[in-house]
Structures are given as structure tokens and as C-alpha cells.
Design a protein around this nucleic acid. Sequence first.
DNA 1: CCAAAAGTGTTATTAATACACCCATGC
DNA 2: GCATGGGTGTATTAATAACACTTTTGG
Lengths: 234, 234
Amino acid sequence: MTDETAWTIPSVAIAVDLAVLTVQSGQLRILLVRRGIEPFLGALALPGGFLASEDEDIDTAAARELAEETGLASEQLHLEQLRTYGAPDRDPRRRVVTVCYLALVPDLPLPVAGGDAQAATWVPVDKVLRRGRALAFDHKKIIADAVERARSKLEYTNLGTAFCPPVFTVTELRTVYEIVWGQRLDPRNFHRKVTNVENFLEPTGEQSTKNGGRPAMLYRRGSATVLYPPILRG
Amino acid sequence: MTDETAWTIPSVAIAVDLAVLTVQSGQLRILLVRRGIEPFLGALALPGGFLASEDEDIDTAAARELAEETGLASEQLHLEQLRTYGAPDRDPRRRVVTVCYLALVPDLPLPVAGGDAQAATWVPVDKVLRRGRALAFDHKKIIADAVERARSKLEYTNLGTAFCPPVFTVTELRTVYEIVWGQRLDPRNFHRKVTNVENFLEPTGEQSTKNGGRPAMLYRRGSATVLYPPILRG
DNA sequence: CCAAAAGTGTTATTAATACACCCATGC
DNA sequence: GCATGGGTGTATTAATAACACTTTTGG
């Protein structure tokens, strides 16, 4: 930080945008809102906004936006800073630098479209990334970065469990991996791997009999947040 | 991004700070400047500054600051965004959000203290992180994040070579790993690992005879930027 | 010759992969 | 019983770890 004085500092607006990912109906999906004003009127965009006040912390702003859009508080959910995007022409109106956050959430009943928030919808990321028309600003690039971050974090952390309900089976967790990575995993080897890593899964003692076949053990997320050795995609 | 209009947007200053790491004299070191004004007068701080103009891209601003401080251009050097720090009270004067960048550079002749830049010095990160007094703002935390990012990136990328000169030996590269990780590595296994990964190192055909003992083959950084399987710290 | 550093070979251990097989439920 | 999904055992392969040993220089 240099010693330049305040009068030399250009005026720049700071926004906070959210890339909220979930696994729903066998797809990796992202929460998007339809823009109601120009620019990019009618285009899909990441939910977000400007700081609520000059005193609001940016992490707090992200958590607030997330609660407004999904109704979720910070428990059973993961929120981390992704990256800051600050190309000078990314917003045609004025200079806006946006601090983007990545959130991983379980399959929610639905995003509640209430209050002043726009109606939000879950959109498959495959569709967004392949035919990326109708995406506002540089949000397609942001989504690509968010998805890559999520994919890589599944390799060496327990964040796959953020997509699961509080109590889940090994198969549910494996399905999350398969959907996020777009790749089949051997059920038997995956089972052994995640159950052998110390404190990765915490057995509840309960069983799930929801599907046909032999009942599955139910687990909670364990205390181990890192997975060593990692599960590599290959 | 919401549809709030500009008059609701709080005014926040955006800074760009640099965590420039190098390996020098057997230590991992970071480039720091001594502050000449309040607040934190006389304390060590990361080099950085505000955007040069309202039209300057933040990545460009980081590259410009880096060139000003080190004289290095973007070749034979790595520069990536680290994280954005935006706690409301991190600067007592006014609200400042800083976008921090991580740079990895080879052992330079010296940082040139010329023009309007303050005199910069290389400070061992161990010293900074252990007895972190005299660090301005939240820069100690930023440095800790930068070091952890650098350490983890050595595991699965070729960024260790960013600390090396354009042409280097396997032993020089291993020494970089040992210093950054603070851990000894088996010379033989390391050699086999990095020379076996396809396109990780590009042989020059030349040999180095600088040290005693058998001359070492000289390599350039290869085209492979990711290391699979990774070299894990354990 | 000796010391020092570079590099190869070899073995043991560990982890990943592939797949046969058994287990426990619903119907 | 039979289909279905859950879970274990095991052989194969690949990667890591540990270390003996050879190579090539300088003195």
C-alpha cells in the first residue's frame, strides 16, 4: 500500500456477486436471476449487489446476499471468496469491481423469490457454459471459474458434503462427485476411500432404506476438512 | 449483480497490493517497503497502491506496480490474483478494499529503489510470520495467505520454476521446494519425479559445472504447467 | 586417489484400479 | 426366489519411499 493521498484515488464502485452451486435432479446447477433493467435487460446474471453501507464487510455482504437469495444461514453451507473481477469495461455504465464468492449448498426446496429480490432459478451449468448467450457482463467467465474451483476442491476437501443434506449415504456423496466431475466413479473403491479416511465421515448409526436394496449407513460430515491422500480426477 | 442505482452505492477506495516472493540466500523472502507516513508510520508493508486511473484494469495495475518495484516485466515471473481483503476497519483513515496479488520471482540482483517508489527490501517470511509486529494493516494475514498459496501451488504446478533463473539444474529446483516447504526432499526421488513428468522440464543440452562434483544437466521450464501426479507435502 | 555432487537401479511399502463376490432389504 | 443397491475381499498395477550404488567432475 503506497502513501498516495486520498484525492488521487479514482472512484470505483464495489459489488459482491455470488456463484451459488447445487446438485439437483442429477445436474450441477447455478443460481441465476433474470435482469429487469438495462444493461443486459432480460439476460441471466449472478445474484449480487453493492455493499449495504460503507461499513459493511465484504464477507458479511456476501453472506447477507446469500441469505436474501436462498434463505440459508451459514450453517450446512459453504461460502468462500472466489476472485475479484475488475476489467474497466465489464459494466458499460460505470467502473464496477466485483468481489465474487462461491457458495455450495444442498438441494434446497426452492429459492424463495420474496421481498426485493428478483426471482431466482437453478440453471444447469452445462447449459450455461456451452451456450453462454444471454449471460450478463462477464458472468459466464465467473461461472466457469466457480465450477473449476468447486471441481478441484472436491479432490482434497470434504466440500462434497456441502451439496448433501445433513445426513447422507456414501452413495449420495459419490453421486455428488460424479455429477460435479461429470465422470463415473467405482462405487466400491469410492466407498472404501471415504470411509477409511479418518474423521472424514461420522457414522450416525442410522440406516437409510429409501432406495431398494440393502439399507445404507447414514453419515454426517466429519471433522476432517482435508482429504489426504486426495481423490484425484485423473 | 442487482439493479440498484448508482446513488445508493457507498464510496470505497480500491487498492492493489503485492505479495512478491522469492528464494534468496536459502530463505523464502517477501518484498516489503517501510511506510513513510501515518498510519503505521515506520512499519513494514506490502508494496502497492491505488489504481492509476479510473480506466485501469486491476490486473494491469498489479503488473504495473510489480514493474515499478522490481523492474521485472511479465516474462520469467508469475503473477496471479491472491484474494481481496475488505474488512471495514482495516485502514483507519477510510474504507479501503485491496485486491492482493501473489508474484513469484527469481533471485533478483536487487529491487531498485528509484523514482517515486520507496526503498523495498527482501524480508524472510519466517521472521515476518513469527514475530509479526511492525506489519502495517492486515498485511501479516495477507502474507500468511500468500505463503500458503505458494506452498500448495508447488505441489501440482510448475511454479517452482518461477523462483529459478531461466536455465537451472534439478538440484536448484529441489532446493526451491525444500526452502518453500521447509522440508527436506530425497534428491534421487525428486530428480526422477520431475524428469519423468512429460514436458515438465525441457533439457537444454548444456551442463552446469558451477558446483563441485559431477556436472548437472541444465533445464528450462517445460510446457507442462500442471504436475500429475502432484508432489504432495504429506 | 579422494571428496563432492549428479544421476540410476532396486526393493519395499503404499495407494489406486478393477472386478468377483457376499449382504440385506423390497416385492 | 429374485432384483436392487450396499458393502467387503482380493489381485493387479502404479506410485512413493528408502537407500545402495555408479558416474563425473575438481583438487
